[in-house]
Design a protein around this nucleic acid. Structure first.
Lengths: 220, 220
DNA sequence: TAGATTGTTAATCGATTAACAATC
DNA sequence: TAGATTGTTAATCGATTAACAATC
């Protein structure tokens, strides 16, 4: 908190760097859990399979946090990256669509681990509404706007069927939720909210590409 | 000049280009479904929010498929990108771990849409084994090695709990499955198999970053 | 043909790597 | 201190954009 905006220069961090931060964060979390106190750029480079130069450049984007001759303090670096990413900002999320994928996310540690609080689940199905899952009573979509107006969640996790995606996305956007974690296979661009489109299928295709590349080379 | 262009496979396609192909594929699928026959690089650029130059460069990596003065044939381009990605190679997949996420994937069209055939589901839980889900009878993990030896699936979808991830991954690798679509939060690197590590949490963090960036600017 | 749009080369931009002086 | 390792500048590499000649 007190370190926020300590750098007067408007150093913009490139998206290439931002996209690497979650991976650094994961490795640092593991190191921290293992009780490691310090790490050098070259040790970390070895672990991640990238160059030490890149690590030093990246970490320097947000102000020198290493110590010459010593390396980086694992807990401090971890905390610093967390604060850059907005982890532990206390963001609150709701899941819209309580099918298998919605339930999988609701029961996973993915929110807690990033300091995001899951607050509510929504669905339209009368067979689900009113039921309890993972300690949440599933709410009907007719309550959605009122709920959002009252609780002002930051993030909507969108796990509804394809057919209703655009309609539900519009409701989320109009209700004033600022971030959408979109798991449907429709690429969304909303007027106000920021959207992270996941597109799991894209990674399956990349895997297929890798398989074909490999088998081609192996001469199978 | 024309002798240089004999083999379009000769050119190495950069990973930057490969990573864009799934997105092209999605947009082309939509255009094809809408009955669009031809599209120019500038029209597509407008849709995707990138430059027409980049599109022409990308498509040219795998041999000129456009026609000067006309543009690109949507169906042909679609088929060509599909073949580069290895979509419709007839790859076969099994899901290992039939919890909420495994079931969500089993019931989603993600495999069918990429020409991948889902063949079997595996789990250890006695309450699941023997049950039927999405037309598949769930098999016990004790049958895994025999099944793989007999059916030789190409892809294992890994949706098991964190605690057993490494152990199950080893079994998959030893059994000779060549591709792993890994949804656990452990980053895997296997001796033989190619792994796509998904790390949903990373995208949640990126979303948090975007939210904080935005609210900082908005002066909330 | 004439207009349109690609294929391709050249210019620009950005990101990664290398090198080393600063300094803990 | 002396050794180690960062912070930072400079060099390299790769990717994107611009421009235009080729050509449908």
């Amino acid at each position: 908190m007190e370190k926020e905006n300590k750098d007067p220069r408007e150093k913009t961090i490139s998206t290439a760097v931002i996209n690497r931060l979650p991976r650094y964060y994961r490795y640092l979390a593991d190191l921290k859990d293992a009780g490691v106190e310090r790490i050098s750029s070259s040790e970390l480079a070895e672990m991640l399979g990238i160059t030490a130069s890149q690590i030093r450049q990246d970490f320097n984007c947000f102000g020198g946090f290493g110590q010459q001759g010593y390396g980086y303090s694992v807990p401090r670096l971890y905390e610093h990256i967390a604060s850059i990413l907005g982890v532990n900002e206390g963001y609150r999320a709701v899941i819209v669509g309580t099918g298998n994928l919605g339930r999988a996310l609701a029961s996973s540690p993915v929110f807690r681990k990033r300091g995001v609080t899951l607050e509510a689940l929504f669905d339209v199905s009368p067979s689900l509404v009113g039921q309890t899952f993972c300690g949440f009573s599933i709410l009907g979509m007719e309550e959605f706007e009122d709920y959002v107006a009252e609780h002002r969640p930051d993030i909507a996790v969108l796990t509804v069927p394809r057919a209703v995606t655009r309609e539900v996305a519009e409701r989320i956007d109009r209700a004033g939720i600022r971030g959408v974690w979109n798991f449907t296979n429709i690429e969304l661009h909303l007027a106000h909210a920021t959207v992270q489109n996941i597109h799991l299928g894209d990674t399956l295709m990349t895997l297929c590409y890798d398989l074909r590349e490999k088998s081609g080379r192996a001469g199978e």
